[in-house]
Design a protein around this nucleic acid. Structure first.
Length: 431
RNA sequence: GGAGAGUUGUCCGAGUUGGCCGAAGGAGCAGCAUUGGAAAUGCUGUAUACGGGUUAAAGCCUGUAUCAAGGGUUCGAAUCCCUUACUCUCCGCCA
C-alpha cells in the first residue's frame, strides 16, 4: 500500500513512477478525487458527531440532576439520522478508495530498468562456468524419467497435469537439496520456521496477493482459506499487526514449504518437466529490517541465494527485473536464473525483492525508533531457492552420456554417500 | 462436533443497575530529584489512527474513532442484544 499523504503532496512523482509499471495517470487522479471526497465527508460527519457528543453530555448532566431532558433528546435524535446517512456515504466511498489504493503497485527504486515488458532487464553478473557437453544434453524430464526417479504419468493419473512423483534417489535428491539450503541459511543467520500452509484472506491481503491476484491461487472450497502460493505469505504475516521490538531487528527467517499455484493463464507454457508445477517445494527467506538498512539487506539476501548455487556448482546469472516484470509489492527485484543446457537458456530459480514499507503498511507492522516513534518496518523476501527447479538444473547440468547423474559434491553427505544416480541404484523397487 | 467461561491500554487488572470511562489501580518504561555512583525512595510523564488548524520543522492546539471484529437497540454503549473469530475448561472424536 502506498502512502496517500505522499501521493497528495506530489502526484506527478507517483504518476511518473507508476507509469513505468503500466498504471495510467487517471488512476492516480481517481484515487486523489476519492481521497478529497473522503476528507470532505469526514469533516461534515465529524462536526455533527461533535455536536451530538456535546448534546448527549448535557442530557447526561440533566438526568443526573434529576431534570427533564426530553426536548434535548428530541433534537439530538434528528442529528443521529443525519449522521447515519453521512456515515453510510463515508463507508461507501472508503470501500472504493481502499480498493483502488490496494491495487496500485509499489514505486520502483531509482535505477530499476524501465520497460513495459520483461525485455530490458539488466544483467548484473554471470557466475559459474557453463559446461561444454561432448554429447547432446537431455532435458531434465527425460533424464529423470529414464532413471525412473520422476514419474509424471502416474501423477497425471492421480492428480492431473503439472504434478509429479519423485521416486527413490530422486526424492532423496530433492530432500538433500532443501536440507542443504536450510542449513546454509542457518549459517547465514536465518531462523528456521515451519509455518502453516493454509492462510486466511487477511494474510493474503497483507503480502499483496489479494485483492488483485486471486486467480493464481487455490482456495479452500467455501472457506476463507488459501493454500499458500509461497512461504512469503505466512512468514511475512507472522508480525502482522505487531510492533516489533527494535532490539529484534533485523529479523531473518527461512522456511521450506510446498507452494501451490493454479498457474491459470500459463496454459501451454513449460508443460513438460519440473519448471512449472501446481505444487512445488521452495525454501524462502524473509527479512524485516529498519528502513535505512533494507537496500543493504537486499544485496545480502541475494548473496545468500547465490551462495547455494555457487556451492552446488550450477552456472547462473543475476538480473535486475524491469519495472513491469517485478512483482506487485516489490520496489526492486534481483532474479537468479540457472543455466539449463538442454533448453539452452537461463531459467528463474530465485527472486529477491525489497518491498520497502509497502507490505508493512498493509499489515500494520511497525517498530519503535530511537525517538519512540512508531515506524513501518521494511520487508524483503527471496527464494533461497526453488527446490524443484534446482533439482531440474542438477539433472541437466550434471548428467552423463550414459544417462546417469553425478551428485554435486556438497550434496553427497546429504545423499548418505551416494555420488551418482544410475539406473541400477535409482529406485530400489524397480530393479 | 456438544456444553460452559472468557477476550479491556506494553503487561497484569478494575469496571457489566448504559451518561461523571480513553478508561481506576498496579507493574513496566522514560524524565527529573536524591546519591561519589548505584539500589531503594519521591515526583512527573507514558496509546494509536484519521481529519482540521498552526509551524521551516520537531511540535502544539482541536475534532472524530478505537475496551477482539462486525452489526443492532439508544439522545448516548467497554457496559444491553445478535453474528463471527479466537482463547480456556469439560465431553466426544482423532494423528
Amino acid at each position: 500500500m502506498l502512502d496517500i499523504k505522499k501521493i497528495r503532496k506530489d502526484p506527478e512523482f507517483f504518476k511518473q513512477k507508476l507509469a513505468t509499471r503500466g498504471i495510467k495517470a487517471e488512476e492516480i487522479d481517481e484515487v486523489l478525487e476519492l481521497d478529497q471526497k473522503r476528507r470532505d465527508l469526514l469533516q461534515k460527519t465529524e462536526a455533527l458527531k461533535a455536536q451530538r457528543n456535546d448534546a448527549s453530555k448535557k442530557i447526561g448532566e440533566a438526568k443526573r440532576n434529576g431534570e427533564s431532558a426530553d426536548d434535548a433528546i428530541k433534537e439530538t435524535r434528528e442529528l443521529g439520522d443525519q449522521i447515519k446517512e453521512l456515515d453510510e456515504k463515508v463507508e461507501a466511498n472508503d470501500e472504493v478508495f481502499h480498493d483502488k489504493m490496494s491495487r496500485l503497485p509499489n514505486i520502483p527504486h531509482d535505477g530499476v530498468p524501465v520497460s513495459l515488458t520483461e525485455e530490458g532487464s539488466v544483467e548484473l553478473r554471470k557466475v559459474g562456468k557453463i559446461r561444454d557437453f561432448d554429447f547432446t544434453p537431455k532435458h531434465h524430464w527425460d533424464v529423470g524419467e529414464n532413471l525412473g526417479i520422476l514419474d509424471f504419468d502416474r501423477a497425471r493419473k492421480v492428480s492431473g497435469a503439472r504434478f509429479v512423483y519423485y521416486l527413490g534417489l530422486g526424492a532423496q535428491l530433492e530432500r538433500a537439496v532443501y536440507n542443504f539450503m536450510l542449513d546454509e541459511h542457518m549459517k547465514d543467520g536465518y531462523t528456521e520456521v515451519l509455518p502453516p500452509y493454509i492462510v486466511n484472506a487477511a494474510s493474503m491481503y497483507g503480502t499483496g496477493q489479494f485483492p488483485k491476484f486471486k486467480k493464481g491461487v487455490y482456495q479452500v472450497n467455501g472457506e476463507d482459506m488459501t493454500l499458500i502460493p509461497t512461504a512469503e505469505v505466512p512468514l511475512t504475516n507472522y508480525y502482522r499487526g505487531d510492533v516489533i521490538p527494535e532490539s529484534e531487528l533485523p529479523v531473518y527467517v527461512t522456511a521450506l514449504t510446498p507452494c501451490f499455484r493454479s498457474e491459470a493463464g500459463a496454459a501451454g507454457r513449460d508443460t513438460r518437466g519440473l519448471i512449472r508445477m501446481h505444487q512445488f517445494n521452495k525454501v524462502e527467506m524473509v527479512k524485516y529490517t529498519k528502513p535505512e538498512d533494507s537496500w543493504d539487506e537486499l544485496e545480502k539476501m541475494t548473496a545468500n541465494a547465490e551462495n547455494i548455487l555457487k556451492k552446488i556448482g550450477l552456472p547462473y546469472h543475476v538480473i535486475t527485473l524491469t519495472t513491469s516484470d517485478m512483482s506487485f509489492t516489490a520496489s526492486e527485484t534481483h532474479d537468479l536464473e540457472l543455466w539449463m543446457p538442454a533448453q539452452n537458456k537461463y531459467r528463474e530459480v530465485s527472486s529477491c525483492s525489497n518491498c520497502l514499507d509497502f507490505q508493512a503498511r498493509r499489515m500494520h507492522t511497525q517498530y519503535r525508533d530511537e525517538n519512540g516513534k512508531l515506524q513501518y518496518v521494511h520487508t524483503l523476501n527471496g527464494s533461497g531457492l526453488a527446490v524443484g527447479r534446482t533439482v531440474a538444473a542438477i539433472l541437466e547440468n550434471y548428467q552423463n552420456e550414459d544417462g546417469s547423474v553425478t551428485i554435486p559434491e556438497v550434496l553427497v553427505p546429504y545423499m548418505h554417500g551416494v555420488t551418482k544416480i544410475t539406473k541400477e541404484n535409482a529406485v530400489p523397487f524397480k530393479k
